[in-house]
Measured scan of single mutants.
Amino acid sequence: KRPMNAFMVWAKDERRKILQAFPDMHNSNISKILGSRWKAMTNLEKQPYYEEQARLSKQHLEKYPDYK
């Protein structure tokens, strides 16, 4: 399994927040909201998630050095 990218790292927690506020919302609508919010964020706001992506990628490479 591939490591999560920056968007997926961010969306994991954001999806939970949306589901808590709107428990009956369909997944497709949640995904649209998440995509819009991510696009509206600045690079500075996204930076911590890119850093986490890099950490996860490094960890994955160490754990699975032959992964293609």
Rank of each mutant, 00 (worst) to 15 (best):
A54M: 08
Y50R: 06
F7C: 02
A6G: 06
V9A: 06
E51N: 07
E51Q: 12
I33Y: 03
P65A: 10
F7W: 04
Q20P: 02
N29Q: 15
D66L: 06
N27W: 13
M41P: 02
M8I: 03
Q20F: 03
D66Q: 10
Q53T: 10
P3G: 07
I33E: 14
N5L: 02
L19Q: 15
S57D: 12
E14Q: 06
P3V: 04
A11R: 02
Y67R: 13
I18H: 01
K12L: 09
L61G: 14
E14S: 03
K58G: 13
K68C: 03
M4I: 07
M25V: 05
N5I: 01
I18W: 02
K46A: 00
R2F: 13
L44H: 08
I18E: 01
P48F: 04
R37Q: 08
D24K: 08
M41H: 02
P48R: 04
A6M: 01
K39E: 14
P48A: 08
G35N: 15
S57V: 12
R2K: 08
P48H: 04
N27L: 13
S28L: 11
K12E: 14
K58A: 11
I30L: 08
I30A: 02
R2A: 12
R15L: 09
G35L: 12
F7D: 03
G35A: 14
Q20R: 09
N43L: 10
Q53W: 13
S57H: 10
K58S: 09
M25N: 01
M41L: 08
Y64W: 10
L19T: 13
D24F: 04
H26C: 12
R55G: 07
H26M: 09
Q59I: 13
K1Y: 09
L56Y: 04
I18D: 00
I30K: 00
S31L: 11
H26T: 13
H26I: 07
E52D: 07
N43V: 10
E52G: 03
S28A: 13
K32W: 05
N43G: 12
E52F: 03
N27S: 14
N5Y: 14
E51W: 01
R2I: 14
K17S: 06
K17H: 06
L19C: 08
S31D: 15
I18R: 00
A54E: 11
L44E: 15
Y67N: 15
W10G: 01
P23L: 01
K46T: 02
R2T: 14
M25R: 01
A54G: 05
R16M: 08
A21R: 09
D66C: 08
E14W: 08
A54H: 10
E45H: 02
A11Q: 10
W38C: 00
A6V: 02
M4A: 12
A21V: 09
L56W: 04
P3I: 07
Y67H: 05
F22P: 02
L19G: 05
L61R: 13
P48T: 04
